[in-house]
Amino acid sequence: MSDADSYGDTYTESQVIMTAVKIIAPFTMTYGLFLTFHGTDTPGGSFQGGTIVGVTVLMLAFAFGIESTRRWIRQSMIVGLVTGGVVIFAGTGVATMALGGGFLEYEAFVDRFGISHYWGMEAVEVGGVALIVSGIIVTLFFATAAGFTPVGDDADHHEMGVGNDD
């Protein structure tokens, strides 16, 4: 695997940092989830909470190595988070339309199921924005960390592009 040495080179294991991150990570994770779930009542919300959950993963990546964290998290999970967030967000809007309201008009839920307006907001905040933001923060980090490696057909493409310019 050629990419392992492309960005495994800067990482060295440090007992101090790993221990400190092990102590801190549960707290930041809890704080991020608190901000997400409690955002309607106290300062905070899904954008902040999602960011802090994402940053927790970044912190783990710094302590335990980007490559091994990426393997631990798994591609499908991040993709699932982001696309799932968009789908839940859009789905909430479509559901309110199906119940006879406008897009994201939570009064439709109130009329049909008798639940408070508040729960529609929570669905969008927790299910939509928080998942998207936390997933995207992790995506941006791993994508930037992987960088750009021109290989094989990429190099040919590059040659061709230069040729076209001439």
Partner: peptide
């Protein structure tokens, strides 16, 4: 508590 944990770690790093 967090300041006492994180800052020595940052200095170490």
């Amino acid at each position: 508590f967090f300041v006492f944990i994180t800052n020595p770690t940052a200095a170490h790093a």
